[in-house]
Computed example of a mutant assay.
Amino acid sequence: MQPKSLGTPQCPIARSLERVGEWWSLLILRDAFDGLTRFDEFQKSLKIAPNILARRLRGLVEAGMLEKHLYSERPARYEYLLTEAGRDFRPVLWALLAWGNRHLAPEGVSVQIVDGETGAAAEPVLVDRHSGRLLTEPPFRLAPGPAANAGTRARRSRGLRQHHLEEEEGHV
């Protein structure tokens, strides 16, 4: 059973987990990226109980990841389409896929990301949109943003002090 709230409204990771952190939700999003849109398609793919699927789809709609559209009036049937926020989630799923291939696939890679033009295997990395540089530490780190409250500023300040200590000790 998942908690109702992670209780850290300033943390974007906690906010993200509240929206999509439940594993059925991630698999529904994976299937939506594969083109599935209808309840019965998700149910067949995931072999999930109808009540759980209905709850997860409702949660993804409420979170703004999917939109619900009526495609049949009698009986009422809906399809679920990715929203802009949902489509923006693709790199997160691809990063999970790459991490799983690297660390959790002793039998080898079963699904991989490939270049659609060449067929060559691709390896996702995070880069800064402005500079094009890889997001590695150092020089990149977490810092409080303009909307950070005092607690978030203190937490990020502790992280910065720890980073400087590690740098001085030669661990970075």
Score class of each variant (00 low, 15 high):
Gly170Met: 10
Glu84Gly: 06
Arg90Asn: 11
Pro75Glu: 01
Phe42Asp: 01
His103Leu: 07
Arg133Asp: 15
Asn101Cys: 02
Trp94Ala: 09
Glu41Asn: 03
Glu167Val: 10
Leu134Thr: 11
Leu6Trp: 03
Ile48His: 09
Ile113Lys: 07
Leu60Val: 00
Arg38Pro: 02
Val127Gly: 12
Gly35Ile: 04
Arg161Asp: 10
Arg156Gly: 11
Asp128Phe: 10
Leu81His: 13
Pro144Glu: 09
Ser45Phe: 00
Pro146Val: 14
Val114Pro: 09
Pro106Gln: 10
Leu97Val: 09
Glu18Ser: 03
Gly145Ile: 07
Leu142Ser: 13
Leu66Lys: 00
His103Pro: 04
Gly151Glu: 09
Gly7Leu: 10
Gly132Met: 07
Arg153Ser: 12
His164Glu: 15
Asn149Cys: 07
Glu117Trp: 02
Asp128Tyr: 05
Ala121Asp: 14
Glu18Arg: 10
Thr152Trp: 15
Val111Gly: 03
Cys11Ala: 08
Gly100Ser: 09
Val114Lys: 13
Asp40Val: 11
Leu53Gly: 01
Lys4Tyr: 13
Glu79Gln: 09
Asn149Ile: 05
Arg38Phe: 00
Pro12His: 05
Lys4Ser: 08
Thr8Phe: 06
Pro138Thr: 11
Arg158Lys: 06
Ser16Glu: 12
Leu104Glu: 15
Ser72Tyr: 04
Phe140Asn: 13
Gln162Phe: 12
Asn101Gln: 06
Asp40Pro: 05
Trp94Asn: 10
Gly35Ser: 04
Gly151Lys: 14
Met65Lys: 04
Gly116Phe: 11
Arg158Ser: 01
Asn101His: 05
Asp88Pro: 03
Gly132Asn: 02
Leu81Pro: 07
Asp88Lys: 06
Ala154Leu: 10
Gly7Gln: 11
Gly108Phe: 02
Pro106Thr: 06
Gly100Pro: 03
Ala105Gly: 08
Ala122Ser: 12
Leu126Glu: 14
Glu166Tyr: 09
Glu84Lys: 06
Thr83Gly: 06
Tyr71Trp: 03
Glu117Asp: 15
Leu46Gly: 00
Ala14Cys: 13
Glu169Gln: 05
Asn101Trp: 00
Asp40Phe: 08
Phe33Pro: 01
Glu22Pro: 04
Tyr80Thr: 00
His69Val: 06
Asp31Val: 02
Tyr71Ala: 00
Val125Ser: 13
Leu27Phe: 05
Asn51Lys: 15
Pro91Asn: 04
Thr37His: 12
Gly145Gln: 11
Glu22Asn: 07
Leu135Cys: 11
Leu26Thr: 08
Leu17Pro: 08
Gly116His: 13
Leu82His: 00
Ala122Arg: 15
Leu82Pro: 02
Glu67Val: 00
